[in-house]
């Protein structure tokens, strides 16, 4: 119709919103002075992290991710809720629209997953009943 009319973007976020990020149970979290959190995640196993090599290679066994106050809030509500529920909760707390909250929350979730602080739960939580 218009000269450069393009088909609408097929993007939808259903699968993303249904995902359930959960905190890595092995991660060590400690509060920082500014109200944020420092999350320590064990690094992947490698030969240079074993004795005797590790005595010569600098760096500890944990990789740390530091989050500010907002990041800490997000980290704390990753308790088995879906991404959609997390986005809604952050939107409610900070008076954002759904998509404002989504565009703030999802890159941080992605980064925390990449760093091993969060994982995506594949099974439904215990209280979910599937009616067949």
């Amino acid at each position: 119709m218009t000269a450069k009319s393009v088909p609408p973007t097929p993007a939808n976020w259903r699968a993303l919103l249904a995902a359930r990020p959960v905190r890595n149970a092995a991660a060590a979290a400690e509060e920082t002075d500014d109200g944020g959190v420092r999350i320590g995640v064990r690094k992947a196993d490698a030969w240079w992290r074993r004795a005797p090599w590790k005595w010569a290679v600098p760096g500890g066994d944990l990789r740390y991710t530091v989050l500010d106050r907002l990041g800490r809030e997000l980290w704390e509500i990753c308790d088995g809720r879906t991404v959609e529920e997390i986005v809604e909760e952050m939107a409610r707390r900070h008076r954002l629209t759904f998509h404002e909250s989504r565009t703030a929350v999802t890159p941080l979730l992605r980064e925390l997953i990449r760093r091993g602080a969060l994982a995506i739960a594949l099974s439904p939580p215990n209280d979910q009943v599937n009616i067949r």
Partner: peptide, 20 residues
């Protein structure tokens, strides 16, 4: 002169507005 806007609900794009 020419452009587009797209609106979405919480899950997917719902409306595209194209002008020329």
């Amino acid at each position: 002169g020419e452009g587009r806007c797209a609106w979405a609900d919480r899950c997917a794009f719902r409306l595209e507005f194209v002008w020329r």
